[in-house]
Write a protein that binds this DNA or RNA. Sequence first.
RNA 1: GCGCCCGUAGCUCAGCGGGAUAGAGCAUCGGACUUCGGAUCCGAGGGUCGGGGGUUCGAAUCCCUCCGGGCGCGCCA
Length: 557
Amino acid sequence: MKERLRRLLVEAIAAAVKEGQLPGDAAGVEVYVERPPRSEMGDFSASVAMGLAKVARRPPIQVAEIILSHLPSDPVVEAAEIAPPGYINFRLGPRWLTDAVAECLTRGSDYGRSDWGAGRRVQVEFVSANPVGPIHIGNARGGPYGDVLASLLEATGHHVTREYYINDGPENTQIVVFGGSVQARYLQALGVEAALPEGGYQGEYVTELGQALAAEHGDRYRNVPQDEAGALLFFGLVRDRMIQVLQEDCDALGISFDVWFSEQGLYDSGAVEAVVKKLMDLGAAYERDGAVWLRSSAYGDDEDRVLVRQSGGPTYLASDAAYGLNKFLERGFDHVIYVWGPDHGGYVARLKAALAALGVEPERVEIIIYQIVRILRGGEPVRMSKRAGNAIWLRDIIEEAGRDAVRFFFLLRSVDAHLDFDLELATRQSEENPVYYVQYAHARTYGIQKEAAARGFPGPSTERLELLSHPAERDLMRYIADYPGLVSDAARQRAPHRLTHFALEMARAFHQFYDRCRVLDPANEELSAARLALVVATGQVLRNLLGLLGVSAPERM
RNA sequence: GCGCCCGUAGCUCAGCGGGAUAGAGCAUCGGACUUCGGAUCCGAGGGUCGGGGGUUCGAAUCCCUCCGGGCGCGCCA
């Protein structure tokens, strides 16, 4: 609807320019249509006239008058008025709302979907936590975010691949330390005196891994030296188990990845070596001090970065460049979104530099950094470190609060904002969690339908939707009408939190409607049928919303 | 020191393609139909939008600067 009004305005301005009433450069201005702050001001408004006042060298009100005099007629526009200091306010006929209800019922679960993505192939890579332990609350945030972002892109006509990058490469020091930790726990399980490596992983699950290895293999690996090679050997023994743990965690969150991509695979195929050579051939990398450097400073980074160490081992940047080449060149994604944690902020410039050096257009690379999650327990911050072993596992939180609440809670805030997750609040007060408010609204739409059937009311009908004229009905219908625009806005802005906020507002509009408008009125069957249609459409939109959020939409609670 | 993010009601946060009287939830206080689910609804109080400059007809929103908080600045990932 905004778009429809916007076109009317653009046409009107063009016509005015043609007749010489507005200067030529007026035709190029951006026109935005928005919601006025109060409903008495109309259904939609535009402030173009104020923006044009300067170039037109006329007062805004006059500009608005000129625009209005050229405004093409549209059956849905009941009135277009000018309000000081120069707003153009549109008052629309009831059809634009009731048509939305009808359209929602016709399109069902497709309502809100669009095709502006035109089938572009987009990859969203997220979570990608190192395979050295279960997902903890600190790196869990990317899960719901990436998953819902992917859903939003799907809903707007993109072809989306959800991908998890497994950092199981041999050059990953975390892998080495982790493997060494497993080895130490294995030896201890055999009764051998063994110390954890420097900065080793102290989590209980590591002890369990060691014990499991001892039970399975006995003392077969007892004499493996406690060095890097030994650590990697032990990592190899538990690698599949660790990936399985990560997959189970993602399952528990309701996330299903299309691709689990192994960094080790890039080494095995020679892709890492090849990309370094390619960068050298391109002149984007050079040797110095026995290391190979990426000329990243020529591509926007502060300084050049090491690709291959003096020791001969490639850095993470080298395998990431190879991975990028794989994404863009081999698999041909049009656009790639990386969802990273806050500790990766310093890495953005160098990855972009590497990809730019390889010829990937910068606009195809998008890196989103979400902000830190702070864990509180009753208001007190809880420190956590995977290595220290006092991490808070995602799985435990899900068990306590439930998947729906965890996802909804994580999606309540903008990615740019820090997120406080208070365990006590998420568990003790789980009944007051906002997710229940929305789910209850959805369940209520079912309750009403069931009651209608039980009492023998005729089913929902769109025949007399014009009977829906109560302010609460109009408010509610407005959410239904706005929903498709919300989905494309949220996708464009990479802002899943717009969905949770909209869901809460719409649920409130529905509860208000329920409170003020009796749906099932035996004395007025036509009105009842129309209201029932509104109830069904509301349930449909809530269900579509919750579907995008990956939160269940129960029929009763 | 440099880079990124944040600073809006007591608390947690929306709003930030500049626009009309700045919003919500929680918390506090006070209310609601003998009826479709009270996990609901209504009302009230509560604000120098961190401070200061600037751009503009108009700034929570854009620019500069200062203050406060978080994160990052490795031949770790």
